[in-house]
Design a protein around this nucleic acid. Structure first.
Lengths: 135, 135
DNA sequence: CTTGACTCTGTAGTGTACTACAGGGTTTAG
DNA sequence: CTAAACCCTGTAGTACACTACAGAGTCAAG
């Protein structure tokens, strides 16, 4: 049976070896078998699991949430609806962050158009706005 | 001349006393005068400076950037254009973060609609997508 | 005058996700 | 056979913005 060293699985998943060990400490991947000299011996499936983690991260899930997702997959009786609910919650989460950023962007945009980009700081509408009392 | 204790300025700015001390360590506010017993004695203007920090934070500036903005304000020869440039850079920054979140949201949204929310995990299109090789 | 609320310094911990050593041992390519 | 490239553990550092003590002193109200 073929086994892989940590360097191989890390490279295959596009991660560093330190990151793979970190994921192990976080419980995202199981502790693998060891060689006589203590080297970690991974089964090829571990690469898929690492890639799952990488892709879920790209979709905005935290490591904690990815762990939950992975645990869910191993839970008998868990259904598609559970996964869907998590995905929907994450979408809501992302939407909230977008709304927050959008509000910042609009507020800043308003200040920027008020500022002609000329003159001394004493006349700067941006600094003035930051200095002003709440309305 | 009236001076204020750290508790007063903190409350007035909507911050905790620990946070005000932290801002002092970060160089965002000057080290104030001290009473005989070593208590910090703030001038009322400090409240405005703290509020400036709070508002700039709400607009998405980091403490580092707020420090720069505050330093800029004290720089002779600095102009409105300098502040405007920073605001515009921050807008670009925010837009980038929004685009990133939006891509996540769309990718997740596509997966969610593919998932009927029924059946076992083995048939879940969301988990399948996470498991799949790159296209 | 006492009690409770405040203040001080200095250090360390929180959360998130790594990243970087130091100081060893092991494996592999040439 | 040797030198480079890899692996091990354990600890500590990064960035960001706080937050939380411990252990001590001070101030204000009743």
């Amino acid at each position: 049976m073929t086994t892989l060293t940590i360097g191989k699985v890390a490279k295959a998943a596009g991660l560093g070896v330190e990151t793979v060990r970190f994921y192990e400490r976080q419980g995202l991947i199981a502790e693998p078998a060891r060689s006589e000299s203590g080297y970690r011996q991974y089964r090829p499936e571990t690469i898929r699991r690492l890639q799952f983690i990488v892709r879920a991260k790209a979709l905005g899930f935290t490591l904690q949430e990815i762990g939950d997702l992975l645990d869910l997959r191993a839970t008998p009786g868990a259904g598609c609806a559970d996964v869907q609910a998590r995905a929907e919650a994450k979408i809501a989460d992302i939407e909230e962050r977008i709304a927050q950023l959008d509000a910042m962007k609009r507020a800043l945009g308003e200040l920027v158009v008020q500022c002609r980009g000329e003159g001394p700081l004493s006349d700067c509408p941006i600094l003035d706005a930051l200095d002003e009392e709440e309305p």
